[in-house]
Design a protein around this nucleic acid. Structure first.
Lengths: 88, 88
DNA sequence: ATGAATCATTGTGTAAACACAATATTCGCA
DNA sequence: TGCGAATATTGTGTTTACACAATGATTCAT
């Protein structure tokens, strides 16, 4: 069960929890076993493109938003500055 | 060697020949065997996301431009009207 | 037409992506 | 506090994505 050094990074857990989905229902949506989702989320192995495409379709995002060869930046780094009450 | 009914469609051959790459050199660029490229191009099997990401990176396109659950439209259908010498 | 490069085909082997089952463990929430 | 849902962990089995080798067919330039 060791995770391979050359693992592909993903944001499945991020998108899944954001949508309030459980692993079980996500698994049903893409037609795999629930524990397969677990394996993917913790990077124990990377999926096939087919599964990647299905997951991306469920979340309505491109595959590249879900999977990457490079680690994803913390989401704080990607958020644009929220409207502030302070004047610039 | 039969190709599965639920195969994922790809445009590897299209992009490869467009760039004038041989299977051998493409294989080297993504670090797989040359015949693996052949298997992929003729849809004998679909790749891992990792390989899909590498291929997309080589071509400089998003994964979704290379792989799809739905068959790709003929490329003629996707081209915008070329500049014509005829007046409209 | 001949030869070289590219591609196709077949076969054998291995590692990893899955399925499925069973048992922890953690985590709300009443 | 404890009960149930969600997740984690472990184990076994099958399928398939790969590697590698060898041979045949195409294509293409000379």
């Amino acid at each position: 069960m060791p995770k391979p050094a050359n693992a592909v990074h993903n944001r499945i857990a991020l998108f899944r929890t954001e949508r309030g989905l459980t692993r079980k229902v996500l698994a049903e949506l893409v037609d795999v076993n629930p524990q397969t989702i677990g394996f993917l989320e913790r990077g124990d192995y990377g999926p096939s493109v087919e599964l990647a495409l299905k997951l991306a379709r469920v979340f309505g995002v491109p595959v590249d938003a879900l999977f990457s060869l490079e680690p994803f930046p913390a989401l704080a780094n990607q958020l644009s500055a929220p409207p502030s009450s302070e004047s610039p």
